[in-house]
Design a protein around this nucleic acid. Structure first.
Lengths: 366, 366
DNA sequence: CTGTTAGCGCTTTCAT
DNA sequence: ATGAAAGCGCTAACAG
């Protein structure tokens, strides 16, 4: 090895010399006050490599040198240039959050909170989060993913709002890149996922209602939730939980529109319900309106429970009981799963189901 | 072509060949299927930076060569490695979104929609968006900014929810890095900003109410809005606009709590109001509750107008009139201003005030 | 334990 | 219009 290495260490014609004559390649960029590893090395009186070791393999450096170099690093505010590091190691230390195709005027109300939690979780592991969206007008997210991959900008992907048979999951699986999803496509496609245990949450809701003495209850949610697994699960979960807790679930009215369905629940032929479990807080709001429209009082006459625990729950009169999602846990599990794949290479995909917490307020206790 | 190409296609002694002997410096990274510029060059029978020219200065390449190289690029799905490019040029082609310190359980309801618009606007200009937050537990965002700068990961910053005397603005100004803000700190600190014209929006609200025949009106919003410029502007804007439009603005009750203030508006000594302008949609919801609590009907008896046009506006009964923010315009202005600084070097900071649109619904027309 | 060397993939003079 | 060479800042292999 050393022989061949010596061979091209420095060709007499200087072809291999890095600091050869005619330093013509300098770019125009301003180094805006950033110290380089070279500065640190010079200042500390060591070689570049030693500085690198201080950062990446401190155990190899003599404690006293360590100390001195670290002091210089601190003083100069040095941080390694991430581009250079990435170029060398192939690690981007960046995760892509692949947002679902969505209308800015009807945003997922949870997105903000989820993203904050995600950024914190990634940050704790030394990773940044790059936000990504399909190009406007494109419904196919494939192109966006391919671009990111080709430009080698991220080490892995986080998906949210994963639908049944989600194209993004399908595509990422085929590329073999690490990804983790908030939500699941289904058992046919192995993946690292984290999800809320919607069924368990609805069981908690049913248990709560049963304990409060309700007997006839209704579920209020979009009727076309086949593509939205989380909503379908809540519906199914509540139906089954109602049975377990001895609640009579009034058949869902086939009315067109949520408002009509809500009104129908309150004048069901076999007697109206005394409690409504809603698929989301916004659906619960529809329930509020229907209850009032029928001349009844939320809480006193009809209990209502929402889902998501948006800020509006505390503003409503009476305040709305709702299911709060453990966004921070969710985000950290997602990041953990993703990093396991990135670091471990081929960690077996696995899933985590997280419990959500029922926040009881006056809408179901008055 | 093929002749010259043959020269460096595979030099046996490989002194100039990138895959020459003694490849001791090769990192462990897997090149996950990504083509390099070298591959494209070889495949197309040209030199490396002819390919580079095709990408960065197409006018210097003969059309027929251009064509051929582009075909290869397409076929190989080649995209330049962003890390390598950044290392060389100093351009990151990435913008940081510096999120405000915020509670994940009480997120800014607009953040999701704004971020989507921002990502789209940045993407249209070839930039990505990196999400950033102060480290949890830290209230001082300075450290976070410094880290990003030191690691040279972004070309500029986007700030949202800028408060009066915002620390982030102060710090970024002192570093001299390009940034653009959604919101303003005040006239003392020059900066590139974009903001909603809250006063004009409130004028539209007042005009609308006057046109509907209202004479006595009230404003409902948090009383401690001194630190929240956008809320303070709405309050002030509505007060002044009311005067212009011949509306009598009932003095704001000094009650503790928004709900109490809302109730007070409806039993003001000099006669109750017939319309309420709210600082946000959530405040409008509080108004709804107060109106109902007083045995009155929103729309028929008391008009209510919100601000933000959240999805909940359409769910409420009656649907809530509200002011819709031009998020897409906002985002693209922000990106434009930022890129002007980044590219132009020292573009003079300037501000843009955008008009928001009043969406009239039944809450103010029944 | 420290220093030397090579090169990640790209763009940019400079020379043809 | 195209090619050759240099090097951005960093880290991995190796030599001392």
């Amino acid at each position: 090895m050393s022989v061949t290495a010596a061979g091209d260490t420095d060709g007499p014609d200087g072809s291999a010399s890095p600091n050869g004559a005619g330093g013509s390649g300098g770019p125009r960029r301003r180094r805006r006050g950033g110290a380089t590893i070279e500065h640190v090395a010079r200042e500390a009186g060591v070689s570049r490599q030693t500085v690198s070791n201080v950062l990446n393999a401190p155990e190899r450096v003599r404690p006293e040198t360590l100390e001195r170099v670290r002091a210089v690093i601190e003083r100069l505010g040095y941080q390694p240039d991430q581009s250079a590091r990435s170029l060398r190691t192939g690690e981007r230390r960046t995760l892509a959050y692949l947002a679902p195709v969505d209308d800015p005027h009807d945003p997922n109300p949870l997105m903000g909170g989820f993203l904050e939690a995600l950024v914190d979780a990634a940050g704790a592991a030394g990773y940044r989060v790059l936000l990504f969206r399909p190009r406007p007008g494109t419904t196919d997210p494939t192109a966006a993913v391919d671009e990111l991959i080709a430009a080698r900008q991220v080490d892995g992907f986080v998906l949210a709002d994963v639908l049944a048979g989600d194209l993004r999951v399908r595509h990422l699986t085929s590329t073999g890149l690490p990804f983790a999803a908030f939500g699941r496509t289904g058992p046919d496609m192995p993946q690292s996922w984290v999800d809320i245990d919607n069924a368990a949450a609805m069981d908690a809701v049913a248990a709560h209602l049963a304990e409060r003495g309700h007997r006839r209850v209704g579920y209020l949610g979009p009727s076309d939730d086949a593509d939205l697994p989380w909503l379908a699960e809540r519906r199914r979960g509540f139906r089954e939980a109602a049975g377990r807790h001895g609640l009579e679930l009034v058949a869902e009215p086939a009315e067109a529109g949520l408002a009509a369905a809500a009104r129908a629940l309150l004048r069901a032929p076999a007697g109206r319900v005394t409690a409504v479990a809603a698929a989301t807080d916004l659906c619960a709001l529809t329930a509020y309106e229907a209850v009032r429209g029928a001349g009844l009082a939320v809480g006193a006459d009809i209990a209502v429970v929402g889902f998501h625990d948006l800020p509006l729950c505390r503003v409503l009169q009476p305040p709305l009981s709702s299911v709060r999602l453990p966004l921070r846990r969710l985000a950290s599990e997602l990041v953990d799963g993703l990093l396991a794949q990135i670091r471990g290479g081929e960690a077996p995909p696995s899933g985590v189901l997280l419990a959500a917490e029922l926040i009881v307020r006056a809408s179901s206790t008055t």
